[in-house]
Amino acid sequence: MDSNKYLDDISEIKNMMSRSSRFISLSGISGILAGCYALIGAALAYMRLKTFSSDNYSGFSGRTSNIWGNDLFNDLILIAVSVVALAVITGIILTIKKAKKSGEKMWDVSSKRLVLNFALPLLTGGLFCLVLLQYGVVGLVAPATLIFYGLACINASKYTMRDIRYMGIAFIILGLISTQFIGYGLYFWALGFGVCHIVYGALMHFKYDRNK
């Protein structure tokens, strides 16, 4: 009995504990790319808003009645949906790649648990934002998305790298601050979904991915 065997035992225990409870193949690069898409999306939305306000400025902030079926609104939704779709697809592809590399199964108990716990607050937030739109409280949509996304990250952090918790907290703080600057939602979105994602992705990449 030498201490080498005990050392192996300890590392096996640690390995099993983390592998069975946390999904650790999330890719850092996908965070960076998601942030870039968000910034591009924000820039497109900004340009679209500018051309709109030069036509007829009624102000897209605060309360607006009848936003559904409005051209501007449709374009903004299209931009938002494309950004989210691109980010999710990139994330899935890069995560599959990383999982394959480290020999982890992509769709197992830990990843299912992660997705479920991330999706619950996020779906709640999504529905809540639809309700805000229903009542025409457009100005609070941006803060609400940031806050609920932050809560989703914090909830998911129990089932993946713990670091995602700090990004969640950053989103919540940003969301709360933005409630005091209604009408500047786009800037806060860019700061949160763009800059925060890029910073987080880069940190994760250097912390976990680079040396493997």
């Binding site: 035992d9 096996e12 225990i13 640690k14 390995n15 099993m16 504990m17 069975s20 409870s21």
Partner: peptide, 9 residues
């Protein structure tokens, strides 16, 4: 060891 590790967490 593995079984117990998994069941601990």
């Amino acid at each position: 060891l593995g079984i117990m590790s998994v069941l601990m967490v």
